[in-house]
Simulated assay, not measured.
Amino acid sequence: MDSFSVNSKKSFHVRSNSLPSKPHPVVDEVSEHLCRLKASEEATSSSSSLCQKLDGLQDLHDCIDKLLLLPLTHQALIDNKSVDDLLEGSLKILDVCALAKDVLSQMKESAHELESALRRRKDGMVDIQKYLNSRKMVKKAIHMTLKGMKKTNFQKSDESSEIVSLLKEAETVTYNSIESLLLFVAGPKLPSKMSKWSLVSMLMQPKRVACKDDSTDANEVEMVDAALNSITNRKSDCFAQGEDVQNSLRKLELCIHDIEEDLESLYRRLVKNRVSFLNILNH
C-alpha cells in the first residue's frame, strides 16, 4: 500500500471523529414537544386551549423524566454552571403551580356555593356579592404573585450544554403556560358600569358544556363575571336571570374541574422531575 493511501485513510479517520454525534432520541423528543408548545403560546387563552396546553406539558415532562435518567444528562448537569438556576427555576414552577391549584379550588367552591344558593332562591344578592368579593381577592392574589416573580427568558450561551438549554426552555414554556392559566382565571378588569348592549353581547356568546369537548374561545370566567356584574350594577332581581346564571356557573365548575385534573397531573410530574434532578446532584 503506498504512502498516499495510508495518509488518506488516516485523514478520513480523523475527520470522521470530529463529526457531531447524533442527538439521543429522547433529546429529539423533548425538542419536538417544546416546539409544539412554543408554537401554541400566542394562541388566545380559552379553557379549551388551556386544557390542551396542560396536556402538552404533561407529555413534555414525561419526556424530561426519561431525559433525566440518561447518563449523558447526569454528566451535563454535574459539569454545568447553570445547575443552581435550574434548581431555583424548578422550585419557582412548583410554587406558581401550587398557587394555580389553590385558586382553582377556591373558585370552584365559590361557584358551587353560589349556584346552590340561586337554586334554593335564598339570599341571592348576598351570595352574589360574596362571590364577587371572592373574585376580587383571587384577582389581587394572582396579579401580586405574578408581579413578584421574576420572569426569565433563557438565552443559550456557548457554555450551556444542549441538555441544560432544553431544561431551561422547558421551564420557560411551563411558566408561561401556567401564567396564561392564572390570567385566564383572573379575567379582565370589568368597568364599574357596562352598557346594556355590551353585556348582552357577552352573555349571548356561544355556550359550552365542557372545555375539552369544545373548540370555541368563550371564556366561562368572563361569562359568569359579566352576568353577576349585570345583576348588581342594575340592582335587578337576581332571579330574573337565575336559570341562565346557574347554567353558566355549572359550566364554569365543569371547566375548572377539567383544568384541575390536568394541573394536578402536571404538578405530580414536576415534583417527580425535581426529585430526580436532586438525586442526580446528590450522587
Rank of each mutant, 00 (worst) to 15 (best):
N7T: 03
K10G: 00
F12A: 05
F12S: 02
F12T: 01
R15E: 14
R15Y: 14
N17W: 05
P20W: 12
P20N: 14
K22W: 02
H24W: 02
P25L: 08
V26M: 01
V26L: 02
V27H: 08
V27P: 10
V30F: 10
L34I: 09
L37N: 07
A43R: 10
T44F: 10
S47M: 13
L50M: 15
Q52N: 09
Q58P: 00
D62L: 03
L67W: 02
L68F: 15
L70K: 11
L70G: 06
L72T: 04
L77Q: 03
L77P: 04
D79P: 01
N80W: 06
N80Y: 07
K81D: 02
S82V: 04
L86M: 08
L87C: 12
L91E: 05
K92R: 14
L94N: 07
V96R: 04
A98E: 13
L99V: 14
K101N: 09
S105K: 11
S105V: 13
Q106P: 05
K108D: 13
E109K: 06
E115S: 12
E115T: 05
E115Q: 14
S116K: 12
D123E: 15
D123T: 06
G124E: 05
M125E: 10
Q129P: 00
R135V: 02
K136G: 05
V138F: 07
K139W: 06
T145F: 09
G148V: 01
G148P: 01
M149C: 13
M149E: 13
K150V: 05
Q155D: 06
K156I: 04
E162G: 08
S165C: 07
T172W: 05
T172I: 07
V173K: 05
N176G: 01
E179K: 15
L190N: 00
S192G: 06
M194G: 01
S201A: 07
S201K: 09
Q205M: 06
V209T: 11
V209F: 07
C211Y: 07
K212L: 15
A218Y: 12
E220R: 12
V221N: 14
M223W: 04
V224K: 03
A226E: 00
N229D: 04
I231C: 02
K235W: 05
F239L: 00
A240P: 00
G242R: 01
L252P: 01
L254E: 05
C255S: 15
D262R: 13
E264N: 10
E264L: 12
R269V: 03
V271L: 09
L278P: 03
N282T: 12
